[in-house]
Amino acid sequence: MVETPRQVVVLLASFAVMAGLPAIAAAAGRPDFVTLGSQVCIMAIAAAGLDLLMGRTGLPSFGQAAWFGLGGYTVAILAAHAGDGSLPGWVTGAWFAWPAAILVPAVLALGIGALCLRTTGISFIMITLAFAQMFFFLFVALKAYGGDDGLSMRRRNALPFIGPRDDVGFYYVCLAALVLVLLVLRRVWRSRLGVVLDGIRQNERRMLAIGLNPFPYKLAAFVLAASLGGLAGALHVNLFRFASPDLLHWTQSGELMVMVVLGGLGSLWGAVFGAAALVLLHVFLAQWTEHWMIVLGPILVAVVLLARRGVWGALGGR
């Protein structure tokens, strides 16, 4: 994957806007833009992970929200235990909590992925949904961690140089995480793993015929997608200082799929633009009308039927 000059210009311009967002927000007197920017970065991380699975490997998972929620609950539960003294305070440091929020989903995805990948096509869509629903109801059931009512997190995970109430600082953390994730994913895209995944999507039998067992590659993609979902979930819970089963709701999985397709399936960078498009559409349509979904629904249908390259395809011109 090599970006065209036009694509590079689009990426650099977008990055410049993102980097300058807090200044723009301050000038406009809209501090909530910073929160929106953080939301875009966070959803983009989860969507980019899903694109590796959905777009690059051709495995449409309907359960990405499970990993998002698991990552989020990991940091919230650690904070709750540190709060009541049953765990030492250092578990709320970002250096510990965030890797934990990546690891927990990754380990679970290793087992669940091995099961799910025994199925293909629609069965794969459904079994990933089934596992996500199981986690959803598990968190609904766990009264110790709030159940339906959710679990508040009194303060954000401790970060060096950034105070717990510093929204702008936290935004830059999210942006840095996103950029890092995208650079890593870009390497993966171009690596041997990425090429094999592309081959699996195009024709799995051919991979088998040339003596490659696709299973470990598919599992690797599944686990990687789950890890990124977990990281995004941890950041999301930090942003709002609240975890609830809504994070794992199947519509959340649906929205992540929408972001990937809206941005441009299988294009890596597209996930960012898809996430931005959906978050901004949501906010600005919601300001314009309470019934914003009546606009979003047809947009979605139109994108699927007509504009298959998505936002990135339109901007990047490929």
Binding site: D32, T35, G150, F240, L247
Partner: peptide, 20 residues
């Protein structure tokens, strides 16, 4: 504003009300 009986939605509204 309508919280939709969702704590998370309520928190987002309150966050905006407080800050913006």
């Amino acid at each position: 504003e309508d919280d939709g009986l969702k704590p998370a939605q309520g928190k987002q509204i309150v966050d905006r009300f407080l800050k913006t």
